[in-house]
């Protein structure tokens, strides 16, 4: 019995099963609710896994190491975002210049407003620097936070939260903002909610998903390129 428990604690198998199981339940819930916005598999899975990890008193560092096998595939999946783009390439015509301008503006607004709003609400400078890269996809947010001497793991969590916010509320808010062109909807959501928002859109509509993936990549590029300059102004 103790042998079995010790094995369960050391093997990554338990946490991998818990994570994939929780995600599967999230997918089932999305089906059963007819695609209710809050029933995003990523949100359901994070809540359920976090509760399990806390209940079993597992250290997050150990959980993260156990599930490296899942997180690893984020790289190849990002590469695979070229596929919906390839299928949608014809719809890119006439969009390139507006897209580059819009995404550059979006990157500047994301970083600036995040830093200013943290300060406005009484947060300190460290917190402002940590919140600045939150619109970029997690590995980029971590890298940018490190370059700003901010709290990199917290920056990753804030990026995830921005992504989950987009997966849950993105399509509704886009409709409220009267943004109807599926390409523009995708570009806008991918700029602020990276791969998690893209995951939601790919499930709903391929055109929106393809452009969201493109915006995610371009936002990573634009934010990385502009951050040193923005940091000079925002974090002197």
């Amino acid at each position: 019995m103790t042998d079995a428990l010790a094995w369960l604690r050391d093997s990554p198998l338990l946490m991998l099963t818990v994570t994939i199981g929780a995600y599967h339940l999230g997918c089932r819930l999305r089906e059963h609710t007819g695609g209710h916005p809050v029933a995003q598999p990523v949100l359901v899975a994070i809540v359920m896994v976090a509760a399990t990890v806390l209940a079993l008193d597992v250290d997050y560092v150990d959980y993260r190491a156990d599930t490296e096998l899942i997180a690893f595939w984020l790289g190849p999946a990002t590469v695979a975002l070229a596929i919906p783009l390839h299928r949608q390439a014809a719809r890119l015509r006439g969009l390139v210049a507006p897209m580059l301008v819009g995404i550059t503006l979006g990157a500047i607004v994301s970083v600036t407003t995040a830093a200013l709003l943290v300060r406005l609400a009484g947060g300190d400078d460290l917190l402002a620097r940590t919140a600045a890269p939150k619109a970029t996809t997690t590995p980029v947010a971590i890298g940018l936070a490190e370059s700003l001497d901010a709290i990199a793991p917290l920056a990753a969590v804030l990026a995830i939260l921005a992504g989950v916010l987009g997966a849950v509320a993105g399509p509704t808010v886009l409709t409220l903002l009267r943004i109807r062109d599926p390409r523009v909807r995708g570009l806008a959501l991918g700029s602020v909610s990276h791969g998690i928002g893209t995951g939601r859109l790919l499930h709903d509509d391929e055109t929106q998903g393809a452009f969201s993936g493109l915006a995610m990549g371009l936002t990573a590029l634009a934010t990385s390129a502009l951050m040193p300059l923005l940091a000079l102004v925002l974090f002197p």
Partner: peptide, 24 residues
């Protein structure tokens, strides 16, 4: 086909990082 299969479950791949909320 491989890429589409992976992208279908893009959200799953963010779960390990997302559980990091408990550390903060």
């Amino acid at each position: 086909r491989t890429g589409d299969a992976l992208l279908k479950h893009l959200q799953l791949l963010f779960v390990p990082a997302g559980v990091g909320v408990i550390a903060f």
